[in-house]
């Protein structure tokens, strides 16, 4: 608490040097996390560098708005996703012409199928799941499910923080995490079956 108060004082009324020091202590330890997320979004190192730098500079400019004691990584990732989302939406992407509800049922059914324990838990858990296979299964996930899983499991944000970062309702995040894991299990199961068939 004392530390938080000091940080707040440094940011709001301290010297520029204090402000810089506070920012470096709070934000820069999360640079790898920001860069990793930028790399996943931008898909190439040069753009990831630009995206990371823009995120850090914007965070520095608006550091007064960061609430001390909250998760700085989540705050930085929110800025990062906002920058990226704005750039993306300025592109040529269109919105769907009609609503996709009719397909939600099918997705739901497929997720439920994957949830049922046709998959032997031990076979999955103790199946020496190599990192490469996890990455493959993760990459095969629809991006929105993958982002939610990575933010929860890798960046270690809670659901509310993920909702803020992705600018989506909390219920949507819960659903994406749940369905994302179900789809992951399904993909891993297919990989296991494929390995069994090919002997690879």
């Amino acid at each position: 608490m004392l530390c938080s108060s000091l940080l707040r004082m440094a940011r709001k009324s301290g010297t520029a040097a204090d402000r810089r020091l506070a920012f470096e202590r709070e934000a820069l330890p999360h640079l790898d996390a920001v860069y990793s997320a930028a790399l996943r979004l931008a898909r190439n190192p040069d753009d990831a560098n630009d995206l990371t730098q823009e995120t850090i500079l914007r965070a520095y400019r608006f550091f007064d708005q960061f609430t001390a004691g909250t998760n700085c990584r989540a705050w930085l990732l929110t800025i990062l996703y906002n920058i990226f989302r704005n750039a993306w939406h300025r592109g040529e992407r269109e919105q769907p012409a009609s609503t996709p509800e009719e397909f939600a049922g099918e997705i739901e059914a497929q997720s439920r199928d994957a949830d049922q324990s046709r998959i032997n838990p031990e076979a999955l858990l103790l199946s020496r799941v190599a990192g490469r296979r996890i990455e493959l299964a993760l990459n095969a996930l629809p991006a929105e499910f993958r982002e939610a899983l990575i933010l929860v499991d890798v960046q270690e944000l809670n659901y509310q923080e993920v909702a803020t970062v992705l600018d989506a309702p909390l219920g949507t995040i819960k659903s994406r995490v749940s369905r994302g894991r179900a789809l992951m299990r399904k993909a891993l199961c297919r990989l296991d079956q494929a390995r069994g068939k090919t002997g690879t």
Binding site: A33, N49, L124, L125, V129, I134, L138, D153, M184
Partner: peptide, 29 residues
């Protein structure tokens, strides 16, 4: 199922390590 879910979460965390920001980027920032 709960054990499996927690294990899957742990495996994802172990398998998808955070990338290190390049030294050149750190100095640029």
């Amino acid at each position: 199922q709960l054990i499996e879910e927690r294990a899957l979460k742990a495996i994802v965390r172990q398998s998808v390590a955070l990338a290190k920001a390049p030294a050149e980027l750190k100095s640029r920032i």
